[in-house]
Each structure stands twice: as structure tokens, then as C-alpha cells.
């Protein structure tokens, strides 16, 4: 899939934002007043920023409100609904906390759960797609939730929890990649299956429907070189887990090391998210003879 900046920013930032909100809703860290305001501001900036970024991907953003209507069937719609719900609920919680110094634990917990559901919905936008076998695996929602929670823990200053989650995240991410590498084949993703011509022999594309490109190819036929991908995977793991984790565990806790850890992790998240899209093979590209098993 084409690693469009808007979707990378959307999923990465909103994940971090909702991850942080989920922590804030259960009172981690225990803050009020101005400090609370700063934490909530960061969380909202990330979550809302991500959502806004997602609208850059739309052909007709002015109609975005219509996207709330199909929650019965559409994960994208659900994602919108839950994002707004969690932002509202958490808004009430945050307002009370910041301005009234009033803690409403039930509202907070509900908000936290809604935030996690939002992340889950986001993950299911991708995880549901049979057409993208790499995404269409049970680990996808866990992976998204792990990203959100790790980011949340980091941003909320939970050093050891964050470090622990990072280890878990690295394992999950590695597993997602490894399983992901087998998914296209497992889904019967060959040009022979796609064309139904396999009984006649080996199939290859002789001539594309058009000599130039088209929407489908631009959007869905992205390919990264195997070597390049491996390199990026290593870098992503280093950035999102290994380095920040080492930093947190091996250095004295402090704002600077936390900040560096966050920066490293977020860079890792972006790298991993870029790969999440770039490596994902869409089956329709088989008709263009892309994604042939090497």
C-alpha cells in the first residue's frame, strides 16, 4: 500500500494520543490543574491532530460528518464515532479535573475504555481487510493497542511500565512482521488465483491495461525492496524499543532522558508505521503482476 503521510500521521499520532488518554483516564499520572492541562493538551493535540490529518486523505472532507452514520457496519465509521465519544467523555473528565479539581473516576474509566476502543477500531480498519493479508491477521489489533499503550505509558512518564511494554511491543511487532510475511501466500495471493487461469499454466502480466499509472497502482501497488525493508525493520525496532528502553533502564530517570526516549520511540513508531503500509501487499495488485513471491 502507498505509505501516504496522512494515514501514517493519523494512525501514529491518534494512537499515541488515545494511548495517553487511556492512562490519564485512570489517573496515571496523578495530576491536576496546570500539569493536568498540559498532559491533556498533549493527548488531545495528538489525538485530534491525527484525526485531522486523516481528513487530508479524503476527496471530499467537507462531507466528513457523514462518516459517522455507518457505525453498524463500518470500522472507519466506528472509529470516528468512538474517537469523538472518547474525546467528549475525556473532555468532561479533563475539564472537571483541570478547572474544578474534581475527579470523576467512573467517567475517567469509561473514557479510558472508549479511547482503547477507538484504537481498536482504527486497527480494525486495517485488520478487517482481507484484501491486504498482511494486515488481516489477529495480531493487528493487539499491535495497535500495544503501540498506543506503550506510547501512553511513555508520555505519561511510567518509565518501567513503558520499558516493559516496549519489550512486549518489540515482540509483537516482530511477530506481526514474521506472520505478515506469510499472509499473502496463505491467502492464496498469487496471480494464478487472482486470474483463475492457473489451470492453464504459470501466469504473468504481458501488458498492463494502460502504459502509465492509475489510482489503483498509486494507492495500492507500492513495493519496497526486501533488503530495504529488513534494514528499516531493524532501525524501527532499535528506535521504537531497544534504544529508548535501554536509555530508560540504564540512565537515571530525568526529563531529558524521558524526552530523548519519547523522541526515539516516536521516530520508531513512524518508521514502523511507514513499513506497516509500505510492506502491505494488496491483492488487487496481483492483476498487475506485482507482489510476485521472490
Amino acid at each position: 500500500m502507498h505509505p501516504a503521510p496522512s494515514v501514517i500521521v493519523f494512525t501514529a499520532l491518534s494512537g499515541l494520543g488515545f494511548g495517553l488518554l487511556a492512562f490519564l483516564g485512570v489517573n496515571v499520572p496523578d495530576v491536576t490543574g496546570m500539569t493536568a492541562f498540559i498532559f491533556f493538551f498533549i493527548a488531545y493535540a495528538l489525538a485530534v491532530g491525527g484525526l485531522v490529518a486523516s481528513t487530508f486523505h479524503l476527496g471530499n472532507p467537507q462531507r466528513a460528518l457523514k462518516a459517522f452514520t455507518q457505525w453498524r457496519s463500518s470500522w472507519l465509521s466506528r472509529e470516528g464515532v468512538f474517537a469523538v465519544l472518547s474525546l467528549c467523555v475525556m473532555g468532561i473528565y479533563a475539564a472537571c479535573l483541570i478547572f474544578l479539581d474534581l475527579r470523576l473516576p467512573v467517567v475517567g474509566i469509561i473514557g479510558s475504555i472508549l479511547s482503547l476502543i477507538s484504537v481498536y477500531c482504527t486497527s480494525m480498519i486495517y485488520g478487517q481487510l482481507k484484501t491486504v493479508p498482511r494486515w488481516n491477521q489477529p495480531l493487528t489489533p493487539f499491535l495497535f493497542l500495544a503501540y498506543a499503550q506503550t506510547g501512553g505509558a511513555l508520555l505519561s512518564g511510567q518509565v518501567y511500565l513503558a520499558a516493559g511494554l516496549m519489550v512486549l511491543l518489540m515482540i509483537l511487532q516482530y511477530a506481526h512482521w514474521t506472520i505478515g510475511d506469510t499472509r499473502l501466500a496463505a491467502a492464496g495471493g498469487t496471480i494464478e488465483a487472482a486470474t483463475g487461469l492457473g489451470h492453464l499454466g504459470k501466469v504473468r502480466l504481458l501488458e498492463s491495461p494502460h502504459s502509465g499509472t492509475n489510482y489503483l497502482l498509486r494507492e495500492m501497488a507500492y513495493e519496497v525492496g526486501r533488503k530495504h525493508a529488513v534494514k528499516l525493520r531493524v532501525i524501527a525496532l532499535l528506535l521504537l524499543g531497544f534504544l529508548p528502553c535501554a536509555l530508560l533502564v540504564l540512565t537515571a530517570p530525568g526529563h531529558l532522558s524521558a524526552l530523548v526516549a519519547i523522541v526515539l520511540h516516536v521516530a520508531g513508531v513512524f518508521a514502523a508505521r511507514w513499513l506497516f503500509f509500505a510492506e502491505a501487499e494488496h491483492v488487487q495488485a496481483l492483476y498487475y503482476d506485482r507482489h510476485r513471491a521472490a
Binding site: H57, G59, N60, A67, L129, T131, Y215, Q284, Y288
Partner: peptide, 13 residues
Amino acid sequence: IGCGLCAWACPYG
């Protein structure tokens, strides 16, 4: 809204 998700969901392009 032109989100493109339906095109992603279609296996046939």
C-alpha cells in the same frame, strides 16, 4: 467523502 476505503476493500481493483 472519498476516503478510498472501499477501493482498499475490493480485491479486484
